[in-house]
Design a protein around this nucleic acid. Structure first.
Lengths: 193, 193, 193, 193
DNA sequence: AATGAATGAGACTTCATTCAT
DNA sequence: TATGAATGAAGTCTCATTCAT
C-alpha cells in the first residue's frame, strides 16, 4: 500500500521536478509518512527512481506494443493516425509516466545514462519495426507511394517526437489536437500515392 | 574575463546536468576559482542561471532572426530547408546554448516557470511569423499547394521540434543528417503543389 | 535456540567491530532473523551487550579458576607454564570471548565503565591470588629464589598481558608459540633459584 | 588554528571513545565550531581520523627513534630500562596519541585494517632492530648471558606490550611505577650473565 | 517467537551563501 | 577581484526502538 503510494508520488515528483529537484522528504510527505519509511521499501533514492522509471517505461512500451495488436482490419492511414492518437492517449492517461519517459530520454541523470539508454534502445526498435511494417503494407496496398522504407519511418517517428514536445510545451488540449491533425495530414500527403 | 568563463562553464553544466544537478562549486572549479568568487559577478545561483539562460535564448533568437534576412533571392524550398539546416548549425555551433534552450523549454525549474514561458513565447511568435511568411510566399509562387497557412506552419514547426529531440537523442552526425533529409523530403512532398 | 545464536553472533561482532561499530541489524542478519526479533530475548542493545560481556567474562574466569584445580601434583615451573598455555588455549578455543575480554578491559564503552571495571577487578584478584600461591610454593620448594611475592606476581601478570596483545596482534600460530616459549624461558630464568 | 584544534580534539575523542563512538559534532563542539566547519579542513571523517592516526604514529615513532640516539655512553642495563621509561614518558606526555596507538594497533576499524597494519609493521621493525642491537651489545660487553638474540628481543618486546596494557588499565601512577620496576628487574635477572 | 511498518534521533555530508580580509 | 573560514538549512541514510499483528 504505502509502497505503491510512494511509487506514485515519486513518479509525479520526479517527472515534474526532476531527480535532483525532488527530495525524498517531499515524496514522503505527500504520502503522509516520514522520510525513513521510504527505506523500508526501497534501497535508496536511486532504487526508488529506477523502479519508477522502469514502471514508466513499461507502461510506455505496453502502449506501443498494443499498437500492433488487433489493427489488422483497419486501413493503413487509420492505423498510422491511430498510433499518434494512442500516443496522445498515453500522455493524457498516464501524464506522470509520459513526463518521466520524455524527460529522461532526453536528459538522463548522468549516473544512469547507460541503463537508461539501453531501455530506450529497446522501445525504439520496437516502434521502428512496427511503423516499418505499416509502411510496407501501405505500399503493398498501394496507398503509400512506392519508395524506400527508411525515409518513411524516419519521417513518422519525427512526427511523433515533435508531437511529444508539443504536448508538454503547450498545455492546451485544443491546440494540441489541432496540431496533431495538421501534422498528420501533411505527413500523409507527403507519403501517399 | 572570469565573469565570462563562469558564464560559459555554467552554460555547459546547467545544460548537461540541470539546475539542481549543478553545484556552484563545480562551476567555480571548472574556471579555476573558488566558489565565493562567483558572488563577485553574480548575485546568486538564480542570477547566474538566468544570465546564462537569457544568453542562450538570445543566441537562439539571433539564429532564428537571421533566417529572415538576406534570403529573398532563394527559392521557398531552399529557404525552408535552410531553416532546418540553420537550426542544425546552431546545435553544432552552440551545443551548450541549444541544450539549455531545449531543456528549459520543456522542463523549466518551477521557480522560473513564468519568466521562461514568456521568453519562449517571444521566440515562438518570431518563428511562427517567419515560417508563415515563407508559406504564404510559397503559395503565391505556386510551389506550395494552395491551403490555409496554419496547417503548414504547424507541420513545419513540428518537424523542427522533432528534429531537435532527435539531435540530442542520437549523438551520431550521419544518422541525424539522414533523418533531416528524409524528414524534410516527406514534409515538402506533403505541401508542395 | 535463537536466543543463543543471537548471543553468539553478538559476541563475535561486538568483539570484532566494537559496540558502536556493530548494528543490531548485522547481528540479526547473521542469525537469519529480522532485527525486532532481538527484542523478544533482550531488552535492548545494552542488555544484549552486557549479556554477551558477562558470558565472556564468565568463560574467562572459568579458565582462570580451572588453573587452580588438580595441579597439585605438577611442579611449580610446569604449573606456571601451564597457566600461559591455558590462556593460549582459551584464546584459541574461545576467540570471540577472549577478544571481548581484551577489548573491553582496555577500552570500555564509557557508559559501562563502572560495571566493567568491577568485573575485571574480580578476575584480577582471582588471578593474583592464584599466581601468588604458586610463587610462594615455588619459594617453599626452593625452585624460585627467595624474594617478595609482589614482584613475582607483577612480572608474571605482565607476561600474561604482553602475550595477550601479541596473540591478537600477530595472527600467526608459529610466531605466537615461539614468543610464548621465549618469554616464559626468560621469565623463569629471572625468578628461579 | 581551527584545523589544529580540530585535530587535537579528534585525537582525544577518537582515543577515548573510538572511531564509531565519536561523532563529528562532538569534535566540532569541543572546538566551538559547527560541524560543517570540519569539512573546510578535512575531506571527511575518515580523512580526519587518518590524519590524527598518522600524527599519533609519528609521535610514537619519534619517541622510539630517539631511543637509539645519544645513549652510547650508557650501559646496556640502563639503556634497556631507559626504553621502558621512555615509553612511560610517552604515555604521560602524549596520553592521547598513545591511546590512539594502542587502541588501533589491537583493534583497527575494519575499513582501515591494511593501512594500519602497514604503519605498525614499520614501527615494529624499528623497535626490533633497536632492541636487538642493545642485546647484541650486552652480550659483547658480557653483561648479558650469551644466547640467541631472538628470545631476548621477544621477551623484551613482550615486557613492553604488557606494560602498555597495564598503563591504560591501572590509572594509578604508583602502581604502574612499581610494576615497571618489578617487571624490569625480573626481566634483567632472566637475561643477565 | 517473529515480523512488517513506522519513527525519532541523529549521523555524515553538501550546498548556497556571507563576511572579514 | 578573490579567498579562507564559517554557517544554516537541508539532504540522504542508518539505527535503535516500538507496536500491531
Amino acid at each position: 500500500m504505502t509502497r505503491n503510494k510512494l511509487k506514485e508520488a515519486a513518479m509525479r515528483l520526479f517527472g515534474e521536478k526532476g531527480y535532483d529537484g525532488t527530495a525524498l522528504s517531499e515524496i514522503a510527505k505527500e504520502v503522509g509518512v516520514k522520510t525513513p519509511a521510504i527505506y523500508a521499501f526501497y534501497e535508496n533514492k536511486e532504487d526508488l527512481f529506477m523502479t519508477v522509471f522502469r514502471e514508466a517505461m513499461d507502461a510506455y512500451n505496453s502502449y506501443v506494443q498494443e499498437l500492433s495488436e488487433g489493427r489488422e482490419k483497419l486501413g493503413v492511414r487509420e492505423s498510422l493516425y491511430g498510433i499518434l492518437n494512442r500516443q496522445y492517449e498515453f500522455y493524457r492517461e498516464c501524464p506522470e509516466a509520459s513526463k518521466i519517459v520524455l524527460r529522461y530520454m532526453v536528459f538522463p541523470p548522468s549516473f544512469l545514462k547507460d541503463t537508461i539508454e539501453e531501455a530506450f534502445l529497446h522501445s525504439d526498435q520496437l516502434l521502428t519495426k512496427l511503423v516499418g511494417a505499416w509502411m510496407v503494407r501501405g505500399m503493398e496496398e498501394g496507398v503509400i507511394r512506392e519508395q524506400k522504407v527508411q525515409p518513411l519511418v524516419d519521417s513518422f517517428l519525427n512526427v511523433m517526437d515533435g508531437l511529444s514536445i508539443q504536448y508538454f510545451y503547450y498545455s492546451s488540449k485544443e491546440v494540441y489536437e489541432r496540431k496533431l491533425n495538421h501534422v498528420f495530414e501533411t505527413f500523409w500527403n507527403g507519403v501517399r500515392s
